[in-house]
């Protein structure tokens, strides 16, 4: 018996009968409703293909002292695999992991974004057609949403948020370290420094604007007047949360561009110009 039995008013029979009106067509929409899910699908596929390719490369992810730089790709940071190149890793290494280190570390951002409330909307619409657009019949005969396995796992989003924050701290350290110019005279700023800093800032904005963050910081509180600090945090996060979709796309794009930039510099295709 549900524990709600005590507080629930006596149920009134629900009358579900009755024929629906309107024509039996998939949709009566005439606007270009297919465009948005198609763009989302294409962009996400493009990112997945690039990220998968980059993760399996296991090379050209670090620009080190030989180039007078300290730049590491966000796909490979923190570098914890046995195959990490010298200079790219700290003291902690998973010596038993001999494959690409990106395959370990990417689990965190992948889990964070897959369970993200915004991306759920994006891929439920564009890949799962559930529904493809508002007012368009969804593509499934039966629908149970996120009530059963495997989609009930989406409820662990807050744990990935915490792991994502830890990863952001590592990427912020990488951005700070990118100000070092080893062997070329101490501290400076290059284009790579700016790219890594911008990447870290965007990832922080994306993480802080997350719905789970909003809930954990203050959303769970019922009496704001008794929790002024939590209310203050909630008020800061709420406008950012309204931009979560935009931050999701910008940060996703920039993390790939950051990897691409580091990869091009590391492979010698371009040089990282020093600004000052």
């Amino acid at each position: 018996m549900s524990t709600q039995e005590g507080i629930r008013p006596a149920p009134v029979p629900l009358v579900l009968g009755g024929a629906r009106g309107g024509p039996r067509v998939r949709t009566l929409r005439r606007d270009s409703w297919k465009r948005s899910p198609l763009i989302t699908q294409g962009y996400l596929l493009l990112f997945v293909v690039y990220a998968t390719w980059a993760a399996f490369q296991n090379s050209n992810y670090y620009v080190g002292a030989s180039s007078h730089r300290d730049l590491i790709s966000p796909f490979y940071s923190p570098c914890v695999g046995a195959s990490c190149v010298p200079g790219s890793h700290g003291s902690f290494l998973l010596h038993w992991w001999t494959y690409s280190p990106a395959l370990v570390i990417l689990i965190i951002p992948l889990g964070f974004r897959v369970t993200c409330y915004y991306y759920r909307k994006a891929y439920y619409r564009s890949f799962w057609h559930s529904p493809q657009a508002c007012g368009v019949t969804d593509g499934h005969k039966k629908y149970t949403g996120e009530t059963r396995f495997p989609l009930i796992i989406q409820n662990i989003h807050r744990y990935f948020f915490v792991l994502g924050v830890l990863l952001n701290i590592m990427l912020t350290i990488d951005a700070v370290m990118a100000f070092r110019m080893p062997g070329a005279g101490g501290i400076g700023v290059s284009v790579g420094t700016i790219v890594l800093c911008a990447n870290a800032v965007l990832l922080w904005f994306y993480s802080v604007s997350c719905h789970a963050c909003r809930h954990l910081c203050g959303g769970h509180v019922n009496e704001f007047s008794k929790h002024p600090v939590r209310h203050g945090l909630w008020k800061i996060i709420t406008p950012l949360n309204a931009k979560h979709m935009q931050l999701a796309w910008v940060s996703l794009s920039f993390v790939a561009l950051t990897d691409l930039y580091v990869r091009l510099v590391a492979s010698g295709v371009i040089t990282d110009p020093k600004i000052f």
Partner: peptide, 12 residues
């Protein structure tokens, strides 16, 4: 009983 888990956040 109220099916909150059925909502898949498509924001329609």
């Amino acid at each position: 009983e109220m099916g909150l888990g059925y909502c898949n956040i498509t924001k329609c």
